[in-house]
Simulated scan of single mutants.
Amino acid sequence: MAKQGVSPTNREVFFEHDEIIVSKTDPTGRITYANDIFLKISGYTEDETLGQPHSFIRHPNMPRCVFKLLWDAIQAKGEIFAYVKNMTKTGDHYWVLAHVTASLDGNNSILGYHSNRRRPKPSNVALVSDLYQKLKAAEDRPTNRKDGLSESYERLMHVLKDKGVSYDEFVLTL
């Protein structure tokens, strides 16, 4: 809905170090809550945000394999820390260090998901950005999106194996 016709500007915007972006989604990833910081940095109103798939703010340069890791973790009722590049309503971008978890009911069934996002250190963004560019290039090489996702995911797993860490460990040790 809101992103149609918006092109990336290559202009980065920032939120304050003491601000936390918070959002909640239903089990399908549609936004049910977005705090004022989310709305301020993204440039969208609450009416434009609620009910949208959370991916509507995803920057087109983000490798999908990171979201595969994220969804695998949270659908298994785990948690994940991830660096994510998002796009605002105007095409600007902002980086976050996201902590995403499943929200469970008394029967341990998933009610939805909860994400807190902080402003990452620029040095960490530089390291992650370089890796993400390589993953995105691997993803875009095949003409088939499924093959591209598989290729970038395998490349990411290889990088993590070489470092001897999980993705969370990689993120938290930067």
Rank of each mutant, 00 (worst) to 15 (best):
A2Y: 00
A2K: 11
K3S: 15
K3Q: 15
P8D: 06
T9W: 09
T9H: 11
N10C: 02
D18A: 07
E19C: 05
E19Q: 14
I21M: 10
V22Y: 03
P27G: 08
T28D: 12
G29P: 04
R30L: 10
T32N: 00
T32E: 02
A34H: 06
L39P: 12
L39S: 03
G43F: 13
Y44A: 00
Y44D: 09
Y44P: 01
T45E: 07
T45R: 04
D47Q: 12
D47P: 02
E48L: 03
L50K: 11
L50G: 02
I57L: 11
R58T: 08
N61Q: 11
M62C: 01
R64K: 15
C65M: 06
F67D: 01
L69T: 09
L70A: 01
K77W: 00
K77T: 03
G78K: 08
G78H: 00
I80A: 00
F81A: 01
V84L: 05
V84F: 04
N86T: 05
T88N: 08
K89S: 12
T90E: 14
T90S: 15
T90N: 13
D92P: 07
H93R: 11
Y94R: 09
Y94K: 06
H99F: 06
T101M: 00
L104F: 05
N108L: 13
I110L: 01
G112Y: 00
H114N: 07
N116Y: 10
R118K: 12
R118N: 02
R118L: 07
P122A: 05
P122G: 02
S123H: 11
V125P: 07
S129R: 06
D130P: 02
L131P: 01
L131D: 05
Q133A: 05
K134C: 08
K136I: 12
A137E: 05
E139H: 00
E139I: 09
R141T: 15
R141I: 14
R141H: 15
R141C: 11
P142C: 12
T143D: 14
R145T: 14
K146R: 12
G148C: 08
S152L: 04
Y153S: 13
L156C: 02
L156Q: 10
M157K: 15
V159K: 10
K161L: 15
K163N: 12
V165C: 13
Y167E: 03
D168R: 04
D168Q: 10
V171W: 08
V171P: 05
L172Y: 11
T173N: 13
L174V: 10
